[in-house]
Amino acid sequence: MRFVIWAVRLVVFVLVLLFALKNTEPVDVGLYADHVIRAVPLIVVMLVAFAAGAVFAVLVVMPASMRRRREVARLRREVVRLQEASARRPGEEAPVAPEAIAPLAPL
């Protein structure tokens, strides 16, 4: 399986390399306020656009990913708490949480 993955990576690398070599002609890049950068290789422009898109995609996905990580950590703590509660001896009483005696007031 590793051989197949490396073969696919090699094919993709060769295709990208050939694409880059075919797109080396210089282009003018127009920016805001009529500012123009002249004679930039096309492959550099495409690489910068790809990198900017990748960064934007990561920034869009990050909040949901962080939310899922916090939820997983909370659920793991809950599992540990429940496992500890089920491991107690039958005659032993479960400790009472302070919130059960005096509930916290809402903020």
Rank of each mutant, 00 (worst) to 15 (best):
L21S: 10
V72T: 11
V36P: 00
N23M: 10
R67G: 03
Y32T: 12
Q83E: 09
W6M: 06
S86D: 07
A7H: 00
V16T: 10
V14G: 01
V36T: 02
E84K: 11
L42T: 14
E92F: 04
R77M: 11
E25D: 15
R70Q: 10
E99C: 06
L17Q: 09
L107G: 13
A20I: 13
V11G: 02
V36D: 00
L42N: 13
R81N: 04
R69S: 09
D34A: 06
A7T: 02
E25T: 14
R74T: 07
I37F: 01
V55F: 11
I101F: 10
R81I: 03
M62D: 08
V12G: 00
V79Y: 04
M66L: 14
E93T: 13
E93M: 12
A87S: 15
V4T: 06
R81A: 15
V61A: 15
H35E: 11
R88H: 02
M66Y: 07
F56L: 12
V36E: 01
A49L: 12
A64D: 07
V11T: 09
R81L: 07
A33G: 09
M46Y: 14
L104K: 12
V96C: 08
F3R: 12
P103T: 02
A94I: 10
A100H: 12
P90E: 03
A49P: 01
V55P: 02
V60I: 13
V58E: 10
A97I: 07
L15D: 06
M46H: 13
L10T: 04
A52E: 08
H35G: 02
M62H: 08
V8K: 01
K22P: 01
M46R: 15
E71V: 02
A105Y: 06
V14R: 01
E25H: 14
I37L: 09
V60M: 12
R2D: 09
V44P: 04
L107E: 13
R88D: 01
A94S: 14
T24Q: 15
E93Q: 14
Q83D: 05
A54S: 08
V61R: 14
P90Y: 03
A20Q: 12
L107P: 15
R9F: 05
V11C: 04
